[in-house]
Design a protein around this nucleic acid. Structure first.
Length: 121
DNA sequence: TTTCTTACA
DNA sequence: TGTAAGGA
């Protein structure tokens, strides 16, 4: 299918679809006229890209994960990506650290707000 | 009509 | 990201 159809079926703009290609996330073949030709799995792949992006994964890592993610984006099926586990584990650790940092900020704000409640006008 | 690339707002 | 330009 051409970019227009893929765009309609995924709700992702043509512009963004071309951007995904630039990032190495999608690799459509080119017709003789230069038009991008996407495979039947493209809609699913785009779905995976969106969920992976939502998970906060950097595009560089998404490119790798896409090679072993299949099926409906709602219920991803992973196969043969043991090599990805380390990367994903590291990413999870990064997210956990971020949560800790934010939690610390939240506590600091709570202390301030608590003090504000008792502060005189 | 649809798509392509490049580049600017 | 949207959009315009200039082609195919």
């Amino acid at each position: 299918m051409l970019i227009g159809e893929l765009s309609e079926r995924t709700g992702v703009s043509r512009r963004l679809l071309r951007y995904y290609e630039q990032q190495g996330l999608l690799e459509p073949v080119r017709q003789t006229n230069g038009y991008r030709e996407y495979c039947d799995q493209a809609p699913n792949v785009v779905g995976h890209i969106r969920s992976l992006l939502a998970a906060g994964l950097p595009t560089a890592m998404i490119a790798g994960v896409l090679n072993c993610v299949q099926g409906d984006p709602a219920e991803p099926v992973l196969s043969g990506c043991r090599g990805m586990v380390d990367g994903l584990t590291a990413e999870r650790a990064r997210v956990a650290a971020e949560i800790e940092r934010l939690t610390t900020s939240q506590r600091a704000l709570d202390v301030l707000l608590e003090a504000a409640i008792h502060a005189p006008e």
